[in-house]
C-alpha cells in the first residue's frame, strides 16, 4: 500500500492523540500503547517505535508535572531519590536493547502489555493509616504530606529498599521498551511503599521524564529517534494526554479501563502472532 508522508503523519497523529488520551485517562500512560500501535497497525520497525514513544513519554511527563506539583501531591524528595534507581535501570535497559534480538524485544513488550492490563484492573485502595514509623524513610526525609478533604495528611513510606529495587526494574523496562512503565512504578509505590494513590501516580509521573531521558541519549546516538516519525507522535500524544487529565472524572475512567485493557491484550496477542508468523 502506498502512503505518502502527509497521509502517514496525519494517521499517526490521530492514533497518537487517541493513545495519549486513553493512556492518561486510565493512568497507564501513552507510551505503553504507542509502541504496539505503531508496530502492529502501521508496521513500523520496533526500534523507531521505541524511539518515538520515548520522546512522547518525556513530553507528557514534563507537561503534567507542574500541575501535580502545584496541587501538592508530588513528593519531590521521594521522586528525586527514586530517580537514582530508575536511571540506573534505564541505562541497563538501553544497553540490553542494543544487542537483544527484535523478536525477544517484542515478546518482552507483549508480556509487559498483558501484565499492565492486569494491573490496571486491580483495585487501588487509598492507604491512610500511618503504621509504625520507619527510621530509614525518616532519616532520608522521604515522608510527606498530601492534601485531602480533611486538610493536609501525613503519610509514611514503608519498605523503602524494596520499593527502590522495584523502581530499578521499572527503569530497565523503560529503557528497554521506550515506555514510561508507569504501571510498574505505581505498583512499587502503591503496594510496597504504601503511598496514597494520588501521591504514587503523580510522583511516578515526575520520575518518568528523567528515566526516559537516561536512555534517550543511547537511542539518539543509534538513530532510533527518527524526526519524521517522532514529530506526529509527540504532537499527538501531548494534547491527547492533557485533554485526558482535564476530563479525568472517576466514573468515565472506570468504564474505559476494561476497554483499554482489552485493547492492550489484543495488541499484545497480535505482536506475539507476528513473532511466530515471522512477520517481524
Amino acid at each position: 500500500m502506498y502512503v505518502n508522508v502527509l497521509e502517514f503523519s496525519l494517521l499517526v497523529w490521530i492514533g497518537s492523540f487517541a493513545a495519549g488520551f486513553l493512556g492518561s485517562l486510565t493512568g497507564l500512560g501513552g507510551g505503553v500503547v504507542i509502541v504496539p500501535f505503531l508496530t502492529s497497525v502501521f508496521g513500523v520497525d520496533i526500534r523507531y517505535a521505541i524511539g518515538a514513544s520515548l520522546v512522547s513519554v518525556i513530553a507528557t511527563s514534563s507537561s503534567a508535572a507542574p500541575t501535580y506539583i502545584k496541587q501538592g501531591y508530588t513528593n519531590l524528595h521521594l521522586g528525586m531519590f527514586l530517580e537514582v534507581a530508575t536511571t540506573i535501570g534505564a541505562l541497563i535497559g538501553a544497553a540490553i536493547a542494543t544487542f537483544i534480538s527484535l523478536k525477544a524485544l517484542a515478546l518482552v513488550l507483549a508480556i509487559v502489555l498483558i501484565y499492565s492490563a492486569y494491573l490496571s484492573q486491580q483495585p487501588r485502595p487509598e492507604y491512610c493509616e500511618s503504621g509504625a514509623v520507619e527510621s530509614l524513610s525518616d532519616t532520608l526525609r522521604l515522608n510527606g504530606t498530601c492534601p485531602t478533604s480533611e486538610g493536609l495528611m501525613t503519610y509514611q513510606i514503608h519498605s523503602f529498599p524494596f520499593g527502590f529495587g522495584l523502581m530499578a526494574v521499572a527503569g530497565v523496562l523503560s529503557g528497554l521498551l521506550g515506555i514510561g512503565s508507569g504501571a510498574f512504578k505505581v505498583l512499587a509505590m502503591d503496594r510496597i511503599m504504601r503511598l496514597p494513590f494520588k501521591v504514587s501516580t503523580t510522583t511516578s509521573n515526575f520520575t518518568i521524564g528523567v528515566t526516559a531521558a537516561a536512555s534517550a541519549g543511547v537511542y539518539l546516538a543509534r538513530g532510533y529517534i527518527d524526526p519524521g516519525l517522532s514529530m506526529p507522535v509527540m504532537l499527538g500524544v501531548l494534547p491527547g494526554a492533557l485533554l485526558g487529565t482535564k476530563v479525568l472524572i472517576g466514573a468515565k475512567a472506570e468504564i474505559l479501563r476494561p476497554i483499554f485493557s482489552l485493547l492492550l491484550v489484543a495488541m499484545a496477542l497480535r505482536m506475539v502472532y507476528n513473532i511466530f508468523a515471522g512477520g517481524l
Partner: peptide, 24 residues
C-alpha cells in the same frame, strides 16, 4: 517541533513514507 513539522510536511509531504525497515 511543530514549526519543523509544518515545514517538513510542506516540503516532503508527497514523498512515500517508509518506516517498515530500519536504516541508520
Amino acid at each position: 517541533v511543530f514549526v519543523g513539522g509544518i515545514l517538513y510536511l510542506i516540503i516532503c509531504g508527497t514523498e512515500p513514507a517508509n518506516y517498515q525497515f530500519f536504516r541508520e
